[in-house]
Design a protein around this nucleic acid. Structure first.
Length: 775
DNA sequence: CCGATACGCATTTTT
DNA sequence: TGCGTATCGG
């Protein structure tokens, strides 16, 4: 047993106070780079090791899968397997989805309900608009969706919406008075389709806990200690769910930074963190103010910036690191030149300071800005990686396959139905689908019900179409029968093959189709890995629904990018939250771009943009560069703009400004008097650049996968039970190199805890694990 | 039912 | 400019 106080000693004063706090609510305000995850994981460890709290009484909630994974790994590492037990850790959505699945009956859903992603929601909105004969140019689907989402985030039911004078008035003012009706229909359709959208996962959890106190009590008693990461990003429902769930003495520990709240456009409300002590009057407040990440100059500059915001909790973030150099501001003639300046600087620092390419990040406000930098980097043959853009799961071919999986799991799923009813083409066109929808709406049933009993619901189509519909139905039914008798991988692969997707995509060999093939193969691999992992962890049977549940809450950021090559990172400021880089370039600092144009009218929006800028700057450890361009190619033509007001929000003591922008020298002009900088083009290299647009590692061929599947029970390494012991070095088929930490159980149930170099700590059920012992 | 062409419109996006 | 959608013609 380790000396229990060690890890406590390594904390600073305020961290320690937060970690060792008595029972009761606590709010930890954690400045950027102040070690908030550390406090979170240490407190969990402290409770378990010193306070004899049982792991199964702990719940830790995050916003991203990535954050969840990090906390799981770190806690696991800290306390080891025996103590880890079954702590519930995960995103709000995944944890609540798990609860909703086991309580599905109570809230009126089937066991197999599926999840709509935002594009499904949008698509449903569109069909409702069509049915109501509303003009999509006035009722912009995105607007409608955000109003509905906003209502849900505030727990306004369709009925409450219809009765809310305030909301109706606002809609009327915006000339979209029928939002209320759309909302109502949207909800009905989701219910009929046995689906939930992302917001519903939270709303129904609230309803479950609020309307069924007995159920709530069950979970309250289970989760005696609740942790929330990034609390500044919670919305109203989330905070209310917590309120229901947390009972005396309110062991709710939330960690966050109000200065980093950048998701209000998604319903996050900064009031949650600002009012925490009002909701929980006994709450203790802890402030982590020492920044371990950045130089003093960077921290001070960031402080001076965020100081311009009104709504915030007072804190004094400081750094004891080296002072560091001033933040250099560059002015470029054009967006292209801005790219060159940045890339030149990267090349220079790479050379002079021996920095790895992975030490650099270029952060921009909008994804559209990435291209310029991409081109500049490509010209210089520097390796880079762009995050964002269309994610793996948003690709058409992937969505098609997932739609099949969804429909097989839940035939009532309307969006999945509509997506694949005629893909691959089987002669069921829009007119037929419209008739089905009409009949379904008229009888308040799902589309699937209509094609099951066409005559009952008065579906008027000709015989040929009826036959085609029937064939489709039989195919789906055929798959459905195997839902719980077959493995997700086997069934999934059969669906892809027998549905005709394979023949459709493999029919022609155009380059874009080739990449589709690769993507499908990648997905098949994903299913395979998923099954294998779950089996190794001890799940006997892994069904398609399990895969779906996981995958519908997954984003591309969660795919393991173990691609070890060193690359410059290009991403939006939003996606950079939580990350850190030695050197950061914040680019495009122009009015109407950063801050964006719409921030002009609203004070709160401007403050949010400022926080966003704060997040950007505080990603930097050593160097931070700011830049803007005088002219920029936007929407097809060149536009001129002014430097961002945010540059002037930073105390100029911490900046090194280009000539013409220095407040003491020339305050009349806007920074346009002179060109700044010595952006000289270096000789171009015409080598093939190392491009990598976040497509996951090269997928093995489908053929290879099939081979693996057929040899499912064959072990590469040792047979179950004997042969392994702690300390051995192994190589796992997917996780790579690792060291066995412990082995327990015998025979069938023999499990090993393995620490992998690149994949973290895993528990493997030897019966399934495929690896070989190296030494 | 699918392809071609025309129009209009553009943030950020953990789940 | 470039994508996604709407509409029309084969």
């Amino acid at each position: 047993m380790p000396v229990t106080t060690n890890y406590i000693d390594e904390l600073n004063e305020s961290q320690r106070k937060a970690v060792m706090a008595e029972d009761g609510p606590s709010l930890v305000i954690a400045g950027a780079g102040s070690g908030k995850t550390r406090v979170l994981t240490c407190r969990i460890k402290y409770l378990i090791m010193e306070k004899n709290v049982e792991a199964r009484n702990i719940l830790a909630l995050t916003f991203t899968n990535k954050a969840a994974k990090e906390i799981v790994d770190r806690v696991f590492k800290e306390i080891g397997k025996p103590w880890f037990g079954d702590i519930w850790m995960g995103t709000f959505h995944s944890v609540f989805l798990r609860i909703l699945r086991s309580e599905h009956r109570i809230i009126g859903f089937s066991n197999n309900f599926t999840i709509y992603d935002s594009s499904d929601s949008k698509s449903l909105i569109k069909s409702i608009l069509k049915e109501l004969e509303l003009d999509v140019r006035i009722y912009k689907p995105n607007l409608v969706l955000s109003r509905i989402s906003n209502a849900k985030n505030h727990l306004i039911s369709p009925e409450a919406y219809a009765a809310s004078g305030e909301r109706l008035k606002y809609d009327l003012k915006c000339k979209v008075p029928r939002i209320s009706d759309i909302y109502k229909m949207y909800n009905i359709r989701c219910k009929q389709s046995d689906v939930m959208d992302f917001d519903d996962i939270l709303v129904y959890t609230y309803v479950l806990f609020n309307d069924y106190p007995k159920v709530c009590k069950k979970y309250s008693e289970k989760f005696r200690y609740i942790f929330v990461d990034e609390y500044q990003d919670t919305n109203e429902v989330q905070s209310k769910i917590l309120k229901l769930l947390v009972k005396e003495p309110y062991n709710l520990c939330v960690v966050g930074d109000d200065a980093q709240s950048i998701y209000s456009f998604r319903g996050a409300t900064i009031e949650n963190i600002l009012n925490f002590t009002k909701i929980y009057p006994t709450a203790k407040l802890f402030k982590l103010e020492q920044n371990y990440r950045s130089t003093q100059v960077i921290v001070k500059a960031a402080n001076s910036l965020i100081d311009k915001n009104r709504a915030q909790i007072k804190k004094e973030v400081f750094s004891e690191n080296e002072e560091g150099e001033r933040i250099q501001v560059s002015c470029a003639y054009s967006d292209v030149e801005e790219g060159e300046i940045v890339v030149n600087k990267i090349a220079e620092l790479h050379r002079t300071e021996k920095l790895s390419y992975a030490d650099f990040a270029i952060l921009y406000r909008t994804n559209a800005q990435s291209r310029i930098f991409e081109e500049a980097l490509r010209k210089r043959s520097l390796p880079y990686r762009i995050y964002g853009g269309l994610s793996f799961y948003q690709r058409k071919e992937i969505k098609d396959v997932i739609a099949y999986f969804r429909l097989v799991t839940n035939p009532d799923d309307e969006e999945a139905f509509k997506r694949i009813i005629n893909y691959p083409a089987r002669g069921i066109g829009d007119t037929t689908v419209s008739k089905i929808v009409k009949a379904a709406v008229a009888s308040q049933v799902s589309l699937w019900s209509v094609i099951c009993e066409p005559e009952v619901y008065g579906l008027a189509v000709n015989k040929g179409t009826l036959a085609k519909l029937n064939a489709f139905r039989m195919m789906i039914m055929g798959f459905k029968e195997r839902l719980f008798t077959e493995d997700a991988f086997v069934l999934g692969q059969d669906i892809i093959r027998q549905s005709g997707i394979i023949s459709d995509i493999y029919a022609d060999k155009s380059p874009e189709n080739l990449s589709r093939q690769e993507n499908i193969e990648e997905l098949v691999n994903g299913v395979h890995d998923f099954c294998a992992t779950r089996q190794e962890e001890g799940d006997e049977r892994v069904f398609l629904m399990d895969f779906l549940s996981e995958v519908s809450l997954l984003s591309d950021q969660d795919m393991d990018n173990s691609d070890s090559e060193e690359k410059v990172t290009l991403m939006t400021v939003h996606s950079a939250k939580g990350l850190e880089f030695n050197t950061v370039f914040v680019v495009g600092l122009e009015e109407d771009l950063f801050p964006g144009a719409s921030a002009k009218n609203s004070f709160t929006e401007l403050e949010e943009e400022r926080r966003l800028f704060y997040v950007a700057i505080t990603r930097a450890e050593k160097h931070c560069f700011l830049s803007f361009a005088r002219s920029r190619f936007r929407y097809g033509h060149v536009e001129f703009g002014n430097p961002s007001c945010f540059i002037r929000d930073i105390d100029s003591r911490y900046l090194s400004l280009p000539a013409g922008m220095r407040p003491d020298l020339d305050s009349r002009n806007n920074g346009w008097s002179k060109q700044m900088g010595d952006a000289r083009m270096e000789p171009r290299l015409f080598e093939r650049p190392k491009v990598n647009i976040i497509r996951p590692t090269v997928p093995p061929s489908l053929k290879k996968v099939s081979t693996i599947s057929s040899s499912k029970t064959v072990q590469t390494g040792i047979s179950s039970g004997g042969g392994v012991c702690a300390g051995q070095k192994i190589e796992h088929e997917r996780f790579g190199l690792g060291i066995i930490e412990s082995v327990e159980g015998t025979g069938e149930n023999c499990k090993a805890t393995v620490r992998f170099t690149n994949a973290g700590v895993k528990q493997l059920l030897l019966k399934y694990a495929r690896f070989k012992v190296i030494e």
